[in-house]
Nucleic acid binder design. Structure first.
Lengths: 213, 213
DNA sequence: TGACTTTAGTATCACCGTGATACTAAATCA
DNA sequence: TGATTTAGTATCACGGTGATACTAAAGTCA
């Protein structure tokens, strides 16, 4: 690369953590004591630390554990601050965890944070089509309805049950266990486990039906 | 966002410009007089300038015109330099333009640049599925074979001719003109023009056949 | 001139994934 | 017992894909 002077800036990291829960998407936005309102987690890399390592550290500090998926989404320069935005997916938090707000209420964090959340959700939806991340948001065994709800929460739309299961079966990504789980009313559901597979690179044709955004 | 101190760094912008040409992908890597070898274009934002504006300015300086598509791909922190990498797609350059090298020869730019080029190509392939960018790499009228070659160059694989045309027709994205072009030997090809359309958001099911990387 | 080559473009067909509809199965609830 | 709820399956029509093979129209070359 042809190096030139460069611009001196302050580097920061913002993080949008998303978690599917009961078919909805939650955003991690704990109360920020310093400002008396909710805010997305943020921080900055330390000397010698990579951006990814810094983001993972900030997540660990906030949640006490790692995200199932964490990746850069975009970088923004505002004044003399450059902010690298990461999006992450984590397992559903406890239902009474007050640090999480529904995705729909992200607007209450301000216009800037709202845009970050929108970008994060879009990125997360893309990961679903390219990685097995959804399986890592669930416990070791899970029902196919739980898996479908996870997809639906992140994609923001409902999926066809039979098609979802057919695609899953043909990909041989899950294996049934001998256990069933009864969840209140309704027929018990069989538990499945994720089967790591050599991904078959099924190259399909070109699509000309791109989306609005 | 919960603000903290931040890290002082130097901000730079690297740019990978790709151009499909004769079914191959070219990379813009002019000779860097200061270092006596080829290098990817680079620069830095000016005070008050956005990253996108800086990238567009660097492209204009290098090419004398805008890219058909230019977008952030990733940001890397190495020591005290944060580098934002942009990828761009531009129309095919003149065949004798020595500033371009074949994509396969990107390794000669060094391991770092090679990785940037790989990431840029991957990003560009993603744009093809989500935006009409390929149409803006061609002149106002073009043959369907030229369009297909553009896709093939960026995707790095050959496409089925009949399927390509069927998908194109059903999307109603191109309209035939009354002109034909004879290109040396072989039957002349009809010229088409791009028809901007309200994109029909055809939401398809979930795919479980993610790719290796 | 006429056969061959090259490129453009189309027709047919088997196959597969999708989504709609409708069904069965097994649990709880009133 | 019967209604409701959730799980799971069967069937069918439809549309997109890719293989194969064909026709069409130009240039090349003996």
């Amino acid at each position: 690369m042809a190096r030139s002077a460069g611009l001196r800036v302050t580097l920061a990291v913002d993080i949008v953590l998303l978690a599917p829960s009961r078919g909805r998407l939650g955003v991690y936005a704990p109360a920020d004591r310093a400002r008396g309102r909710r805010a997305l987690p943020a921080g900055a890399p330390r000397a010698g630390e990579s951006l990814e390592a810094a983001a993972a550290r900030i997540v660990r500090t906030a949640l006490g554990g790692n995200a199932a998926w964490l990746a850069q989404v975009a970088t923004r320069l505002e004044g003399t601050t450059a902010t690298v935005m990461f999006a992450g997916l984590v397992s559903a938090p406890a239902e009474d965890d007050a640090n999480w707000i529904p995705r729909e209420r992200a607007a209450s964090l301000g216009a800037s944070a709202r845009r970050l959340v929108d970008e994060a959700v879009e990125a997360a939806a893309g990961w679903l089509d390219r990685t097995p991340v959804a399986f890592h948001l669930l416990p070791a065994t899970f029902t196919l309805s739980e898996l479908q709800e996870t997809y639906e929460a992140i994609l923001g739309r409902s999926l066809h049950k039979a098609s979802f299961r057919r695609a899953l079966q043909s990909a041989r990504l899950v294996a049934p266990t001998r256990e069933w789980r009864s969840e209140g009313r309704g027929r018990p559901a069989q538990l499945y486990r994720f089967v790591q597979r050599a991904p078959k690179a099924s190259r399909r044709g070109v699509r000309f039906d791109w989306l609005s955004s």
